[in-house]
Design a protein around this nucleic acid. Structure first.
Lengths: 328, 328
DNA sequence: CTGAAAGCGCTAACAA
DNA sequence: TTGTTAGCGCTTTCAG
């Protein structure tokens, strides 16, 4: 691979001039610019970004740490991040922590080592990872999930309100024994959606809350629904706190031929791809997913520009989309 | 941020010794190892990977260039890649070209500039990007889609056979006017799946092939199906060459209340998440998606180890999963 | 087993 | 406007 010195020699100028040309300095003689560009083309020169990053002591990479790359919610969010990143000249390194705090810590360490320009994280709950981030000078934005015990730029949806609305919707439809399947303790979305459910139940429900905690995966939702069905007094409706678990729950009901919405009402949080094409179509609490990502990215851009600014906190709203699965 | 010299001073040793300790050299006095590790902890030292990469003139990053991060097929494949990468000590930089050759070229250029250790690419068809890659010393593996006009390590499924099987399946079920919706010209999966369809039609079909080309997106499938439906003699079945387009086609049929499989049979290539839960359940040609990624990653590991080896070509097989949408 | 010193490729003061 | 020079932080010979 040719270096900047090879180009300089070929063009008969100094390395500094080549650097200037390549970085768009306006203070270069047009004749030299032409010579340099010719040399670059002839040698097939490609600047070494590693060297540049070291010299400038900054990179143009963002680490985006999400907890499940297989979840369309996260990929949609990443698209929002990417679009902003690209426009601002950054590249996105996507890190999939797989809901594993240890993997999350590893990725955080790598992001710092690699001198990433910023980190956008949807925490899988590791306090250690959060501490490492806040203890470093790297700009951080929490998205979708709060960063545990940390005050950083944050963009989330109003999980509590969304969950409350979903639960009230089921109660209003005439369901009485409404249960909740939610995610792991310590993950803010799991906890807040559970809280929204509990509030709705406390204030107006004819039955006690029934709660099952599991992971945020499809299999988790399946298992949770199975255990609810085998309980002495099964619920007649379930609010499920994320998309993949909702699909798992639906699959469980389909296999056991439990009529939805007849014998069991179902509402899920998060949009589900082709929720309208599954049978029955799924009532969901939809988030502005792409917007979530875009907003987070913008906060990161701002944070990089003004590191000392007061951390922002943006709450977007979630919206109920009633479909068949909850209409008694 | 403390540097290796700060640690050296704190521990009363040289920077070289710190480096040795941190890189696991066995030729260091245990007493010094202890002093160094203490100093590292006290200062919260974190090695600067950019400097290390420059010095070693290599990185531990892989660029994985895919054409649609919103397509669950690709994310499943990426998981396979990631799992191998992580085990081998690499991190994955996911690049989403969005089926845009220009974006693809940009990412390829970035991967080379950043001195990535390797590239795994599912080409969106850019010959220029392919040329740039093969003209550089970076190890490259093509996955899912061939790299145009290039001989590199490749892992694909048998697209032609899969498409032929799918088409024959529709014909055997009694459909007669079978059409095909496929992707952009120049993308190997689009072209090969089309060829498989055409072969099946030529050899045994009672009607002429009908072909619609569009992009590989959901909307493309929707539009293609709409145009087929409005033609003078609409088909009675369609083979759709990828998952998202299949969903789009199904949505179009659902909106227009065309009975599937009664008035229209449907088979899609690629697995579709919860294909069994949509209505009607979708017949698909399923690929070993995760395996595809894992295999590609292994090829890359081998290629990095022995750059001069003869390029490998691995063809996995795709399998028909008959469900409701094709059963007349 | 340890340290001194060179240099990876680039950019940014500073001189000219 | 251009060139010279000094590092960015690390690893790796080469001496000792």
């Amino acid at each position: 691979m040719p270096t900047i010195y090879d180009v300089a020699r070929e063009a008969g100028v100094s390395a500094a001039t080549v650097s200037r040309v390549l970085n768009g300095a306006t203070t270069v003689d047009p004749a030299m610019v032409a010579r340099v560009l010719t040399a670059v083309r002839e040698l097939g020169y490609r600047p070494n970004a590693v060297a540049r990053n070291l010299r400038r002591s900054r990179t143009t990479l963002w680490a985006v740490i999400i907890s499940d790359i297989g979840n369309p919610f996260f990929t949609a969010m990443v698209r929002g991040i990417e679009d902003v990143a690209q426009r601002e000249g950054y590249s996105v390194v996507l890190c999939n922590s797989d809901e594993d705090p240890v993997k999350e810590e590893t990725y955080v360490a790598a992001a710092l080592s690699e001198q990433m320009a910023g980190v956008i994280i949807s925490s899988s709950g590791s306090v250690k990872a959060a501490k490492t981030l806040t203890g470093s000078p790297v700009p951080v934005v929490a998205v979708d999930r709060e960063l545990p015990r940390a005050v950083v730029d944050t963009v989330v949806v109003d999980n509590e309100a969304g969950a409350r609305t979903a639960t009230e919707h089921l109660l209003a439809a005439g369901y009485r024994r409404v249960a909740c399947i939610t995610g792991p303790e310590g993950v803010s979305t799991a906890d807040l959606r559970l809280r929204g459910y509990t509030e709705a139940m406390r204030s107006s429900a004819p039955a006690e809350p029934v709660i099952v905690r599991t992971d945020f995966r499809e299999q988790g939702g399946y298992d949770a629904m199975a255990s609810l069905l085998s309980s002495p007094e099964p619920p007649d409706a379930v609010f499920v706190a994320n998309n993949l678990m909702t699909v798992g729950a639906l699959r469980c009901l389909a296999e056991r031929e439990v009529a939805v919405p007849g014998r069991m009402g179902l509402v899920g949080f998060d949009e589900i791809p082709w929720a309208d094409l599954v049978h029955p179509s799924l009532t969901t609490v939809t988030q502005p997913t792409y917007e979530l990502g875009r907003t987070a990215a913008r906060l990161l851009v701002d944070r990089i520009a003004t590191p000392a600014a007061k951390p922002a906190r943006i709450v977007l709203s979630a919206e109920l989309h009633p479909r068949r699965s909850s209409s008694r």
